[in-house]
Design a protein around this nucleic acid. Sequence first.
RNA 1: GGGUGGUUAGCUCAGCUGGUUCAGAGCACCUGCCUUACAAGCAGGGGGUCACUGGUUCGAAUCCAGUACCACCCACCA
Length: 895
Amino acid sequence: MSTSPALQDIPKKYDPSKAEDKWYKFWNDSGFFHSEPDERESYTIVIPPPNVTGVLHMGHMLNNTIQDVLVRRARMQGYNACWVPGTDHASIATEAKVVNKLREEGITKADLTREEFLEHAWDWTHEHGGIILEQLKKLGASCDWERTRFTLEDDLYESVIDCFIELYERGYIYRGKRMINWDPEAQTALSDEEVIHREKQSKLYHVKYDIAGEDANVVIATTRPETILADTAVCVNPDDERYQDLIGKQAIIPMVERKVPIIADEYVDPEYGTGCLKITPAHDENDYQIGQKHELEIIDMLNRDGTLNEDARFYVGQDRFEARKSILKDLEQQERIVKVEEMSNKIGYSERTDTVIEPRLSLQWFCSMDKMAKPALENVMNDNVQFHPAKFKNSYRHWMENIRDWCISRQLWWGQRIPAWYFGEGAEEYVIAKTEDEALEKAREKSGRDLTKEDIHQDVDVLDTWFSSWLWPITVFDGIRNPDNEEINYYYPTNDLVTAPEIMFFWVARMIMSGYEFRGEKPFSNVYYTGIVRDSQRRKMSKSLGNSPDPLDLIDQYGADGVRVGMLFTSPAGNDLLFEENLCEQGRNFANKIWNAFRFLAMNMEESQDYSTKLKIDEDNLVDRWMLAKVHSTIKGIEEDFRKFRINEALKKIYSLIWDDFCDWYIELIKSDEQGANIPKERLERGLSIFEVLLKLLHPFMPFLTEEIWQLMRERKQDEAIIVAQWPAANEELIKDEDIALFASIQSMISSIRNIRAEFNVPQRADIALLIKAKNEDLVDSFQQNEWIFRKLQDIGSFEVAVDLEQPEASASAVVEGSEIFVPLEGLIDLEKERERIEKEINRLEGFLKSVNGKLNNEQFVENAPEDVVQRERDKKEDTETNLDKLRGILGELS
RNA sequence: GGGUGGUUAGCUCAGCUGGUUCAGAGCACCUGCCUUACAAGCAGGGGGUCACUGGUUCGAAUCCAGUACCACCCACCA
């Protein structure tokens, strides 16, 4: 039962700022967000954990709005809904921020011990961490905050170490000297995925090398002339006739004057450059391979920070790019540069620091991926894990089939420290252990020596951030350390994951792998890939470009619900979203529309009475039956949309149901017959009951507005809130096509009358006479029974319906599905204009009829098309011909 | 170099299983309305050769092939 809200308290405009914080607190305090395992079926989402020190941007807004829609709907459907929030320690990004901050204070990382640095990092984390989660609350995210996790918390830390040890024991993890991607700014190794390749305009320098002992030379082409200093060979294609006589001889490296062999290898493309390649095994992946094959010397000329070291012999201490300028100048002077070509090539940049990556030979830890990739690939390809949209399966497959080992060690301090303990310098002189004591014991055993704690030391490096987040769906339920605990068994596998396609390889693929490896089970059933949020110039919204609006400003301006709707409206899965603020405006306007619909219903309530909102309709009332049919066919449609993750389509259906059907037609029709009088109680109750269904359908999309209205509509009981109201079920029996069709005819007629008024400048509120020449007797009855509908929506003096009617003189007309309507407009009508109007309609229908006849006259069509399709065409033909006949008749009368 | 997607109204985009008056929504535009829920609104209206060329089909915006342009992802060619 509801009591009438105090009318004076309902303002004309919906004010989100008044409702949002209030209801968010109410939901949270009431425990609606919290989940504990129980007998219900679970519905679980784990949040893609944002960087702990990050700030909410538009991508998060989109992503988390979608998650919230899914979770809220599941909650209303009666699932035990659990959305686990949390943050990621983001090893390299956070460490970079801390280093910067310390630098501003005049402290360099090298001045600090590991422990001191970590203290600063934790301070920073506590100061800035979690801001982003607070921002998510403004958006309305219904996360279970009691479950908030951080990837560097003790138990998650321990889980990651356990996982490392386990994988080591299974033979997946190994240590090796490999060519890796080195970030000279962060001074750490990176995985292949952390390198972004960008097309850059570069110069290709053709440099002359002398041949030892001869008065001859050879020209090589390079984009990185500074690496000449570390050349240890020159290489040509063995079949290249130009260079046959050089193979086996020696070339003299410019500047350093080092004699190096001229070797032959298939790898060299004779067509490219000069067909002659310099080999720098320490600074290029391919050169390294060739170096290994030909047993070449390796000269590493770079320091960790990208400056040149003693082995370069020249420009020592200069940065690599400075050294490039220097060497070019010197080579120029020696007249060794024969040509400079403009070219574009791809250069690798660090995803985090945006500096140019150096390939570097380095001893790192790797995780072998081949075996884990198999079930992960298979179960996506067979849709055990479904991708939405499915097109991403292709790139997933391509990546999985060509997967390379994962470099998991980082030369950083902020992260899980690698549990390797060294007791000597030899390649095998280490043990993997969780604690120092255990390590000592193992080291003693392995070495056969009586070692002490002073003899062993732990690896100083930490693990890649993604080596902890790939376990996220498991570790948030403590499923690594306690693989049989109640929570992991209840919540895992989770249901849906919502994330950006850019982290498919970083994260999604690896979670699927770790899921099968550690749980023997997928981590989630569906992956919904959102698009990238771009600005109106298609640029990715980013902080550095400054083209991203502050989401909190938008929420202030349009309300969280308005922003949510705006973001979802033009955003099907996997499609980029070109964000414009007027999308939020549309959302805000929609909120206001609903607010006013509610306000109108509330205005019609008597202070003294109670109103039931139990769903009931007047079976004898076409409008009620029609509205209910519309509601149920919409529910049916959105269920289908949700099944297919077409969330924007679901929203559009609800939008149209509320605005176009409920507000524009239904509300207009339940208005009181008397000016200024309240809607009769029972009629109002029917309207309220339908309105409640609409609110429920809308709640996942616009949680604040719907809760605000819900609470205003009824006396508050502690356990009554729309957030936990029951999701409406579609009832197919109520979708009565004949009611929808009849009402649609009436709608068309009313539109025709409005059009006539507009065309002939008849004021909307001037009385007109309406004559309907119905197509048949049944329709006469239908129209007569529903005369009130016409009268409610139009000011009508006399109203007449019959099968047989004389077309009045000087009237405007229209034909709607075989029935004619006439509006006498003596003195107002311009007959010439009316003839044009009718002729235009005749032309349109003739064109249509022609295409229908084209089909029906085609024997092939009649023979081959399904019977119902042919029948439909016949019906169209008949209907159109009828309408045309009538229009021609009308036209005849006019002339 | 390999892959994926896009091209529909002035703009941003829907259009799902080929067939319903299928060519649609929002914004923008034009006209008329402060009609006692809402001007953040109501009513009416204009606007499209569905990139191009072929093909499949009784029938194509929709399926196939090619072309052009655009976007994104992946890859160790100096």
